[in-house]
């Protein structure tokens, strides 16, 4: 069986959870196995995961599991894997999944691939899965040889697909160890999609000249329903908040669309964005290295081009 740990936040599933179940379902099909989902803590509609291919949904609704303690989660998930006899375990490669994967590898004495970007291959009984390495400069195809195989998948690796109906939820009973950490507070920026999950991103760099000019970027983002990002020097000097900084030392994003205005495209910046499906670069310098990594390029003054693009999108939406 392929067991998918479906993450929920405040009782709601994130897109990552649906992607993970879709991934688990397709992996199960490939291997001739069934797919089940595991839900921990508060979760309103756990049975909905059936729509994405989970034949069974196992739910442990213990309040202690509403927030992550990787030690507790790993103990519970490992117990579930053993109780249910799972051969493959799928997690999301999120701040939660990443904190658990390594612990599960130890508990289950199993091989793991963190941050897979595609479905596994399964030929002649060899299970292998690929992941980006060297900050997106290459991919490694990695075989896992242990009886239990652990994979965490990158966001936006495959679109969630509805294949069936909601299923009944089966309560799970495994011991929940006491937590040794205390969560004082959890704060999330409301309203916008967090960068690691965003499908559309509008990003800007030093070419903006100063923080007072960011209005045109915010308007473009608003028109698109995109999340805003920035290059590192921009957050270093405080023009933009740190949580917008993408790149090797900041956040890694892989949206469907990444629009970069006034960013030169240094390799450390590209490391965080080069897995984006479509890249649009707006830069007045035709020699800017970013154009080499771009799908569409606009050589021009961003102060003219960006408002024009916003207007064109507005028009497009009216026609659609």
């Amino acid at each position: 069986m392929v067991l998918v740990f479906a993450e929920s936040v405040n009782g709601k599933f994130k897109k990552a959870a649906f992607e993970a179940v879709t991934y688990g379902y397709q992996t199960a099909q490939l291997m001739g196995l069934s797919c089940a989902a595991l839900v921990l803590g508060k979760a309103a509609d756990a049975g909905e995961l059936g729509k994405y291919g989970a034949a069974k949904v196992h739910h442990l609704a213990n309040d202690q599991l509403n927030n992550l303690d990787s030690q507790v989660y790993a103990a519970v998930i490992a117990a579930a894997v053993e109780q249910l006899g799972a051969q493959v375990v799928v997690l999301s490669h999120t701040s939660t999944g990443k904190s658990i994967l390594g612990r599960l590898a130890v508990r289950l004495d199993a091989g793991s691939v963190p941050g897979a970007n595609a479905l596994p291959t399964y030929t002649d009984g060899v299970f292998a899965v690929s992941k980006p390495v060297f900050s997106g400069k290459a991919f490694a195809h990695i075989a896992i040889t242990s009886p239990v195989k652990l994979v965490s998948i990158m966001g936006n690796s495959l679109p969630p697909a509805i294949v069936g109906d909601a299923v009944a939820v089966t309560p799970l009973e495994v011991p929940v160890p006491a937590s040794r950490i205390k969560i004082i507070s959890v704060s999330r920026i409301e309203g916008t999609t967090p960068l690691p999950e965003a499908e559309l991103v509008v990003s800007a760099g030093r070419g903006m000249k100063g923080p007072e000019n960011w209005g045109i970027i915010e308007e473009l983002a608003k028109e698109l329903g995109a999340t805003t990002a920035c290059s590192r020097p921009v957050s270093d000097v405080g023009w933009r908040p740190h949580h917008e900084h993408v790149g090797q030392t900041g956040i890694t994003v892989r949206p469907n669309l990444y629009i970069a205005a006034g960013i030169s495209g240094a390799i450390q910046h590209l490391a965080g964005v080069n897995s984006s499906k479509t890249i649009v670069v707006i830069n007045k310098d035709p020699e800017a290295p970013f154009f080499k990594a771009a799908d569409y390029g606009v050589v021009g003054d961003l102060f003219e081009v960006v408002p024009r693009l916003t207007e064109a999108i507005r028009k497009h939406k009216q026609h659609a």
């Binding site: 292998a128 991919f139 003219e304």
Partner: peptide, 22 residues
């Protein structure tokens, strides 16, 4: 060891950027 690299691959080369009139 329970994992080993079967092969490395380079990402497929990006086709040349399409330039759009500003």
């Amino acid at each position: 060891d329970f994992t080993h690299v079967v092969s490395y691959e380079m990402p497929s080369a990006k086709s040349a950027v399409k330039l759009i009139d500003p």
